[in-house]
């Protein structure tokens, strides 16, 4: 099932939990756990946004930082190997 999650993510454009959960016939909570597990194991890379909000920016005219809540996932090299295995 975890390999299927990797495949679904590889083929998807957007990480839609409801859609992937539906395709795999699991609940969204379980899918979330699976993704966490895959991230922990190093098959997926999770990016919760930039850390610019934490960085003091003395040269800016405006205190602009990334407040857009986008979670990004990418398949790592070992993740790619797992999919192809």
């Amino acid at each position: 099932m975890l390999k299927e999650v990797l495949k679904e993510i590889k083929e998807a454009d957007v990480y839609s939990k409801p859609q992937i959960a539906k395709n795999l016939q699991v609940s969204e909570n379980v899918l979330e756990d699976m993704i966490k597990t895959l991230v922990r194991m190093g098959y997926l890379d999770e990016d919760l946004g930039s850390s610019t909000c934490e960085t003091k920016c003395s040269g800016c005219s405006v205190s602009s930082c990334n407040t857009i809540p986008i979670k990004m996932l990418s398949i790592t090299e070992i993740g790619e190997r797992k999919i192809n295995s």
Binding site: D47, S50, T52, C57, G59, C60, N66, I70
Partner: peptide, 24 residues
């Protein structure tokens, strides 16, 4: 992901450039 840093750059290019750190 580049566009995220570009959106940040609309406010100020300094954090926009720092936002590129998420690109491995």
């Amino acid at each position: 992901k580049t566009f995220i840093s570009m959106i940040v750059g609309f406010g100020c290019n300094v954090p926009g450039i720092m936002a590129t750190r998420t690109l491995e």
